[in-house]
């Protein structure tokens, strides 16, 4: 076993640790709620915290592939599904907070919000886009869809992450510092992908070129 290739037993421990760490934000929120320490506007606080972590896990999920390439740690890929599902988990909490605590099933107001408020329209779209990804996050679905189609479907995470960041940018009253930090990180992660794609295609072309030269 090397740091690049963990054996299954060690990976199991790593996964369990990541699982517990990923639950910490929720545990902290629950503890604060229990201690009546969510501040003057608890519903706003819960909305912000769950939204923040949904976006954060979305970006962490998107960071897996570039990190694997940079570090060579292949096992990172095997954490990706769990991280993506945690993004979905916090997004579900975030949406439920809006639905239940914030609007209390006021469907009329919710309809109007989704149609009339661009930041809600785009945030809601991001949430909807996450659902098929969560539903197909298992080996059976990968087999049923086939790797190629599954990957095509899961490239929905890009528009989803962009929509999530735009949602954040559009909702703040004035101070854009935090949304812009998310935007910059997302830009970096997407930029790295474009760079890799460029490098890969150059390599491929070079290889084709060499083969042609050899056969000529």
């Amino acid at each position: 076993m090397t740091i690049k290739n963990l054996d299954n037993r060690v990976l199991g421990w790593v996964k369990a640790a990541v699982f517990l760490i990923a639950l910490l934000p929720l545990a902290k929120l629950a503890a604060a709620a229990y201690a009546d320490d969510l501040g003057a506007n608890p519903i706003e606080k819960i909305t912000h915290v769950t939204g923040y972590w949904a976006l954060t896990f979305l970006l962490i999920t998107l960071a897996v592939t570039p990190l694997r390439r940079l570090s060579g740690w292949l096992w990172l890929m095997r954490l990706r599904r769990m991280l993506g599902l945690f993004a979905f988990f916090y997004a579900v909490l975030h949406f439920s907070t809006y639905l239940v605590l914030d609007q209390f099933f006021d469907w009329d107001a919710i309809d109007k919000d989704i149609v009339k408020r661009p930041y809600i329209t785009i945030g809601f779209s991001a949430f909807i886009l996450l659902i098929p990804l969560a539903l197909t996050s298992n080996d059976a679905m990968i087999q049923r869809l086939g790797g190629k189609r599954w990957r095509a479907l899961h490239s929905l995470i890009y528009p989803c992450a962009i929509a999530g960041v735009v949602h954040f940018c559009w909702l703040v009253k004035k101070d854009l510092t935090r949304p812009f930090m998310f935007a910059a990180l997302l830009g970096l992660l997407l930029g790295l992908r474009m760079a890799y794609r460029f490098i890969n295609s150059r390599k491929r072309k070079q290889a084709v070129h060499e083969i042609k030269q050899k056969t000529a």
């Binding site: 003057a40 519903i43 706003e44 107001a109 919000d113 009339k116 408020r117 559009w170 909702l171």
Partner: peptide, 13 residues
């Protein structure tokens, strides 16, 4: 960007 029809009174659900 948002509705002003309703408000949350601090301390109310």
């Amino acid at each position: 960007r948002w509705s002003q029809a309703k408000e949350r009174r601090i301390g109310e659900f």
